[in-house]
Amino acid sequence: MPWKIRCANCNTEKVLNISFDISSQKTIYIYCNVCKRNTFNEILGYYE
């Protein structure tokens, strides 16, 4: 399931492919390739 997310620090948007539903969450804490560290990312929605 592809999800569109945005880094809270640098506002970089990317697609996150994971196999479970994260629609009940507002943010997810993962590695940002631009910031080069783990950051909070806003979940923008399901990407079709």
Results as ranks from 00 to 15, higher is better:
M1A: 13
M1I: 14
P2A: 03
W3H: 08
W3L: 08
W3S: 02
K4G: 00
K4F: 05
I5A: 03
I5Y: 01
I5R: 01
I5G: 01
I5D: 00
R6F: 00
C7D: 01
C7M: 04
N9W: 05
C10G: 06
C10I: 05
C10E: 07
N11M: 05
N11C: 03
T12M: 09
K14L: 12
K14W: 10
K14Y: 09
V15A: 07
L16M: 13
N17P: 01
I18L: 15
S19C: 11
F20D: 06
D21K: 05
D21R: 08
D21M: 04
D21H: 07
I22P: 02
I22S: 04
I22T: 06
S23M: 14
S23Y: 09
S23L: 13
S23E: 15
S24G: 12
S24V: 11
Q25N: 12
Q25A: 11
Q25T: 04
Q25H: 12
Q25R: 11
Q25G: 06
T27K: 09
T27E: 15
T27F: 14
I28S: 04
Y29C: 12
Y29V: 08
I30C: 02
I30A: 05
Y31Q: 09
C32L: 06
C32N: 03
C32T: 05
N33V: 02
N33Y: 08
N33G: 12
N33E: 13
V34C: 00
V34W: 00
C35F: 00
K36H: 13
R37Q: 14
R37D: 10
R37C: 09
R37V: 02
N38Q: 01
N38W: 00
T39E: 15
T39K: 01
F40Q: 14
F40W: 14
N41L: 11
N41M: 12
E42D: 14
I43T: 04
I43K: 03
L44S: 10
L44F: 06
L44Y: 03
G45Q: 06
G45L: 10
G45H: 11
G45K: 03
G45V: 07
Y46Q: 13
Y46K: 15
Y46V: 12
Y46C: 02
Y47D: 14
Y47H: 13
Y47C: 09
